[in-house]
Design a protein around this nucleic acid. Structure first.
Length: 918
RNA sequence: GGGCGAAUAGCGCAGUUGGUUCAGAGCAUCUGCCUUACAAGCAGAGGGUCGGGGGUUCGAAUCCCUCUUCGCCCACCA
C-alpha cells in the first residue's frame, strides 16, 4: 500500500465500506450464537443527516461492532419512519409551489404525490449513514409504512379495540390550526411568552342604580382597591351612569364570542354581590349567568373568570359540570367562525388586536397589564395550538402504565444514566389517555368503518365497526340488525390516520414481524433486543410506549438497556438548528476529517446523558489521532527484518511490559463498555495507543538508523498492532480495517470486524507495570535535565543512583531511551551533578562544566522546604491520638510510610545541598 | 407550583462503599525542538481553598443541612 505521510480517509473509506457490503459482513441470520440486537430509532424518511444522528448512530455502531467482535451475532436493523405530520407538511408545501392545494385533491391523488416524494427523498439518510460507517444489516431495511409494518399497525389497532383499550370520543384536544389536525399532549411544546392581561367590563343585566347584593359596610369602592385581588371586602364597579359591572381578566379577549358564563369563587368576598346576577358579554351583548365554583382563584385578576367551554380545557370542564353550551367560534384553521357572529373570517391574532381596539373604543376595556404566560405550540408546525372540542380516537393508558412501570423501576430494563427513571415514573404515574387519531392522509388509515343511513344521528353517536379490512368490516356490519344486506362499499371508512408513534411503538416487534407472525423464528431469536440508543426527548413518545407494546404483545421487554444520549449543542451551548445556522453538515465534516475522525470527535466528549458541546476542533483531534495511527503503521511497516540480529534486551523488556499494559487496558475498556462509558473506553484506547504504544513502546524497540529489526521483536510489534486495531475498530472502523488488511495478506472476505477481543483482557502483572512507571520517571528526569541544560539527545550522559536503584533490571531500556553511556549505583555522588527523585530514590546526572550551581541549589532548597512541610502535616496526623486509634490499620501504616519516605528524602536533599555548597 | 440533575484547572468533563499518589486525564496555554513514522508532530512545564456557609467524623470533592447560580422535565391560575 502507499505510504503518504498524511492519512487520506477518502481513499480508504469508500473502498472498505464497499468491501464490507460486497462480502455481506453486516448481515445477520439466526444461529447458535448469542444474539445482539439493536433496532435503529427510525429517522424521518425524508430527513437528512444532522449532528444528532451522527452522535446517536455512532454510539450504536460502536456497540454493534464491539458486540460482533465479542463473538455475538450482531444485528443492527435500519429503517425509516413515515413521520406523518412532518412529511405531509412537506408534500403540501411542494404541491403549493406547483400551485396545487391539498383540498383540490382526492385522498388517492394526494397519497400518490406523497409516495412520489417519499421515493424521491426516502433513504437519502440511510445512504448517509453508510458514509459514517454504520454496520446496519441493509437487507433488513424497513419502513413504518411498508406492508409488514402497516399490517402490524392495523392488526394492533383492531386488537386493542376488541380489548376495549381504544375508544372514540368527543374530547378537548390540542388542535394544530396550520395542519388542521389533533395532536397528542406530548406533541405540544410550551413556550414562555410576554403577553397581556386584558381587564374587560361585563355590565350587570339590571337597571342603572341598582344596589341589591351590596353589603352596608362596604358600599364604597375605593379606587386603589379596584384591582387589588387580596382585599377582603366587596368591590363594586360603577360607571358614570351608575350602572354596575364585573371586571373579567383574560389573556384571550378574542374568545369572548364563545363566553357562556362568568364564574366566581363562592368564598370570594370581593364578588359576593354578583351572585345570581346575569352579565352582558361585551360587544357580543349576550346575557350570561354568573356561576360559582371553587376552581376560580380568588387572587388571580379580579376573581372573575369568563367561561368559554369550547376553547379552554378548564372551561370545558366547568361547562360539563354546569351543563353549559359550548359555542365553537373558530374554524379548523383558527379563523373566526360564523358561530361567533362578529369578526367572522378574521384570523385569531388579527381578531385579538381588533377586538382590543374595539373594546377600548366602546369603553369596555378597564386596563391592560403586561403578563407572562405559557403558550402551547405544535411541535411540528410551530404554531400556537388551539384547544378544540373534537371527535377523536384514544387509548386507555392506565392499563399500559401499569405494565410498563415496574420493569424499569426494578431495573429489569436498565436506563443509562439512571436519572431518567424518575422522569419515566413521573410520566407513567400521571398518565393521560393518548389521542392517536390525526386528521391527515399520510399515515395508517384508521380501520373503523361507519355504517350508512344514519340521518339525524349526532356525529359522535354514529355506529361503526372496526376490522382489519373493509371485507371483514362488512361481515361484522352485516351481523347488525337492519344491515344484513349491506354491500362492502357502502361502509364509510374513517378519514383519519393514526399518530406516527402508534407505528413506532411496535418497531422492535414489527421489524421481525412479531405481530403478523407471532412466534416466528426471527422474533424468537432477536427479541428482546439488547440496547436502545436514543435521546431523552422521546422518552415518552417512544421509549415508554415501546415498553408498553412490548409487554402487551410479547409479554416481555423490548430491550434490555436504554442509553440516553445528550443533545448536541454548539460550543456556546445553543441547540443546533437550521435557523441559527450553527449546525455543520455532517457530510462536510466527513469530507474534511474523515468518518473516523468525525466519529471520534463526537465520542470524545459525550458521556451518557450529558449534552455535548460540539466543536469542530474535536473532529480535528480525531483526525490527528487517525494520522498518528497511520504514521505508527508507516514506521513499523518501514522496518526491515534482520534475520541474523539478536533481540536486544531493551526490546525483550519492552515487549513484556507492553503485553501487560495491553492486557490491563483491555480489561479497563471491557469494564467501560459494560457500564456504557463509551467515551471513557475511547480515552483508554487513545492513551494506550498514543502514549504507551507510540511514545514509549515504539521508541523502546525502534532499531538504530539504518539497522534492521530482529525477527522476534518485529513479530511481537505486529501482533500488538493487530490487537490495538481490534480495540480501536468499533470507534474507527475504516482506518482499522485498512491497516489490519495491510499487516499481512488476508483471505478474501476476511475482516477485522470479526476478530475476537474477548481474550485481550485478563490478569496482568501489576508489579511490572508499576516498575515501569518508575522507569518512565527516570527517563523523564534525564529528559528534563537535557531540556533545562540545553543538552541534545545525541549527546550521551551518565546516570548515578544514590544508594539503591530498584529499577536496575530495566537499565537497558533506560539507557536506550535517555541515551546514557552508563548507569551506576554509588554512595559517593559526583560533584557538579544535577539531582532528581523518582519515588524515594535519588538520581544524579553529573554535568561537569555544564552545571549551574546556583540554580541547582535553589531547586534543591525549594524541594527541601516543600518536603519538610509535607512531613509536618503527616506528623500532625500521626500525633493525633484519635486518628491512630480510629483509623484502619492500613491507613495509619500508610501515613507512617509517608513519614519514613519524607524523612529519607529530606536526608538526601540535605546531603545534596551540602555537597553542592562546598 | 411540583420534581430531577448539575456546580471540580482557561474550556468541556471523570472522580464507583468517606481513607493508598485523590485532587485527575483530554483539549487549550507556556517553554524548547523541523531528532531520518508523524509540526495533524516530539520533549518538558505551569495551572484548582473541588460554588458559599454550617454540620457529622480521627479524617469530607465524596455524607447531612442551608444559601446562591444554572439546566432539564412535568403541571389547567384564566
Amino acid at each position: 500500500m502507499e505510504l503518504a505521510s498524511k492519512y487520506n480517509p477518502a481513499d480508504v473509506e469508500a473502498k472498505w465500506y464497499q468491501y464490507w457490503l460486497d462480502n455481506k459482513l453486516f448481515s445477520s441470520k439466526p444461529d447458535g450464537r448469542e444474539p445482539y440486537t439493536i433496532v435503529i430509532p427510525p429517522p424521518n424518511v425524508t430527513g437528512v443527516l444532522h449532528m444528532g444522528h451522527v452522535l446517536n448512530e455512532t454510539i450504536q455502531d460502536i456497540l454493534v461492532r464491539r458486540a460482533r467482535m465479542e463473538g455475538k451475532n450482531a444485528c443492527w436493523v435500519p429503517g425509516t419512519d413515515h413521520a406523518s405530520i412532518a412529511t405531509e407538511a412537506k408534500v403540501i408545501k411542494r404541491l403549493a409551489e406547483q400551485g396545487i392545494k391539498k383540498s383540490d385533491l382526492t385522498r388517492e391523488e394526494f397519497l400518490k404525490h406523497a409516495w412520489a416524494w417519499t421515493d424521491e427523498h426516502g433513504g437519502i439518510i440511510l445512504k448517509q449513514l453508510r458514509r459514517l460507517g454504520c454496520s446496519c444489516d441493509w437487507d433488513r431495511t424497513s419502513f413504518t409504512m411498508d406492508d409488514t409494518r402497516s399490517k402490524s399497525v392495523i392488526k394492533v389497532f383492531c386488537d386493542l379495540y376488541d380489548k376495549g383499550l381504544i375508544y372514540r370520543g368527543l374530547r378537548m384536544v390540542n388542535w394544530d390550526p396550520e395542519r388542521q389536525t389533533a395532536l397528542s399532549d406530548e406533541e405540544v411544546i410550551y413556550h414562555d411568552e410576554h403577553s397581556h392581561l386584558f381587564y374587560l367590563r361585563y355590565y350587570v343585566d339590571e337597571p342603572a342604580g341598582s344596589t341589591d347584593g351590596e353589603e352596608p359596610d362596604a358600599q364604597v369602592l375605593r379606587p386603589e382597591d379596584a384591582f387589588d385581588p387580596t382585599v377582603k371586602h366587596q368591590i363594586i364597579h360603577r360607571d358614570e351612569q351608575g350602572r354596575r359591572y364585573a371586571v373579567v381578566a383574560t389573556t384571550r379577549p378574542e374568545t369572548i364570542m364563545g363566553d357562556i358564563a362568568v364564574c366566581i369563587n363562592p368564598k370570594d368576598p370581593k364578588n359576593t354581590w354578583l351572585r345570581g346576577k346575569r352579565v352582558i358579554v361585551p360587544l357580543v351583548n349576550r346575557v350570561v349567568p354568573i356561576i360559582e365554583d371553587r376552581y376560580v382563584e380568588i387572587e388571580f385578576g379580579t376573581g372573575c373568570l369568563k367561561v368559554t367551554p369550547a376553547h379552554d380545557v378548564n372551561d370545558y370542564a366547568l361547562g360539563q359540570k354546569y351543563n353549559l353550551e359550548a359555542i365553537d367560534i373558530f374554524n379548523p384553521d383558527a379563523t373566526i367562525s360564523d358561530a361567533a357572529g362578529i369578526y367572522v373570517g378574521m384570523d385569531r391574532f388579527d381578531c385579538r388586536k381588533q377586538i382590543v381596539e374595539d373594546l377600548g373604543a366602546a369603553a369596555l376595556l378597564e386596563k391592560v397589564e403586561d403578563y407572562d404566560n405559557k403558550v402551547g405550540y405544535s411541535e411540528r408546525t410551530n404554531v400556537p395550538i388551539e384547544p378544540r372540542l373534537s371527535l377523536q380516537w384514544f387509548i386507555h393508558m392506565q392499563h399500559f402504565a401499569d405494565i410498563a412501570l415496574p420493569p424499569v423501576m426494578n431495573d429489569d430494563i436498565r436506563f443509562f444514566p439512571p436519572k431518567y427513571k424518575n422522569t419515566y415514573s413521573n410520566w407513567l404515574e400521571n398518565i393521560k389517555d393518548w389521542c392517536i387519531s390525526r386528521q391527515l392522509w399520510w399515515g395508517h388509515r384508521i380501520p373503523a368503518y361507519f355504517l350508512p343511513r344514519q340521518e339525524g344521528v349526532k356525529e359522535e353517536d354514529r355506529r361503526y365497526v372496526v376490522a382489519e379490512t373493509r371485507e371483514q368490516a362488512a361481515e361484522k356490519a352485516r351481523l347488525i340488525p337492519g344491515y344484513e344486506t349491506l354491500a362492502d362499499d357502502e361502509l364509510i371508512q374513517d378519514e383519519g390516520a393514526l399518530d406516527t408513534w402508534f407505528s413506532s411503538w411496535l418497531w422492535p416487534i414489527s421489524l421481525f414481524d412479531g405481530i403478523g407472525k407471532p412466534g416466528n423464528s426471527e422474533i424468537s431469536y432477536y427479541y428482546p433486543t439488547s440496547d436502545l440508543v436514543t435521546g431523552p426527548d422521546i422518552i415518552f413518545f417512544w421509549v415508554a410506549r415501546m415498553i408498553m407494546a412490548g409487554y402487551e404483545y410479547m409479554g416481555d421487554m423490548p430491550f434490555k438497556n436504554v442509553y440516553f444520549t445528550g443533545i448536541v449543542r454548539d460550543k456556546l451551548g445553543r441547540k443546533m438548528s437550521k435557523s441559527l445556522g450553527n449546525s455543520p453538515d455532517p457530510l462536510d465534516l466527513i469530507d474534511t476529517y474523515g468518518a473516523d475522525g468525525v466519529r471520534m470527535g463526537m465520542m470524545l466528549s459525550a458521556p451518557a446523558g450529558n449534552d455535548i458541546l460540539f466543536d469542530e476542533s474535536l473532529c480535528e483531534q480525531g483526525r490527528n489521532f487517525n494520522n498518528k495511527i497511520w504514521n505508527a503503521f508507516r514506521l513499523v511497516k518501514g522496518w526491515t527484518v534482520d534475520e541474523e540480529a539478536a533481540q536486544p534486551e531493551a526490546s525483550a523488556t519492552a515487549i513484556r511490559w507492553f503485553g501487560e499494559k495491553l492486557t490491563k487496558t483491555a480489561a479497563e475498556i471491557e469494564d467501560h463498555f459494560r457500564k456504557y462509558r463509551i467515551s471513557d473506553a475511547l480515552m483508554s484506547i487513545y492513551n494506550l495507543f498514543w502514549d504507551e504504544f507510540s511514545a514509549w513502546y515504539l521508541e523502546m524497540v525502534k532499531p538504530a538508523f539504518g539497522k534492521g529489526i530482529d525477527a522476534a521483536t518485529y513479530k511481537a510489534t505486529l501482533h500488538f498492532f493487530d490487537m490495538l486495531l481490534r480495540l480501536l475498530h468499533p470507534f474507527m472502523p475504516f482506518i482499522t480495517e485498512a491497516l489490519w488488511q495491510a499487516i499481512e495478506e488476508r483471505k478474501p472476505g476476511e475482516s477485522i470486524m470479526f476478530q475476537p477481543v474477548k481474550d485481550l483482557a485478563g490478569d496482568y502483572d501489576a508489579q511490572l507495570i508499576s516498575d515501569f512507571d518508575a522507569v518512565k520517571g527516570i527517563i523523564a528526569g534525564v529528559r528534563t535535565i537535557r531540556l533545562q541544560k540545553n543538552i541534545a539527545q545525541k549527546e550521551p550522559l551518565t546516570l548515578e543512583a544514590i544508594g539503591t536503584h530498584p529499577a536496575a533490571a530495566y537499565d537497558a531500556v533506560i539507557a536506550k531511551m535517555a541515551n546514557l553511556s552508563s548507569i551506576t549505583v554509588t554512595n559517593e555522588k559526583s560533584p557538579a551533578a544535577v539531582n532528581f527523585m523518582v519515588g524515594t530514590t535519588e538520581y544524579t546526572v553529573p554535568l561537569g562544566g555544564l552545571m549551574d550551581v546556583e540554580a541547582e541549589l535553589k531547586k534543591l532548597t525549594d524541594e527541601l522546604a516543600y518536603t519538610e512541610g509535607f512531613l509536618q502535616s503527616v506528623m500532625k496526623k500521626l500525633g493525633n491520638a484519635n486518628f491512630v486509634a480510629h483509623a484502619p490499620e492500613a491507613v495509619v501504616a500508610n501515613e507512617r510510610k509517608k513519614q519514613a519516605d519524607a524523612e529519607s528524602k529530606i536526608a538526601s536533599l540535605k546531603a545534596a545541598i551540602e555537597s553542592l555548597s562546598k
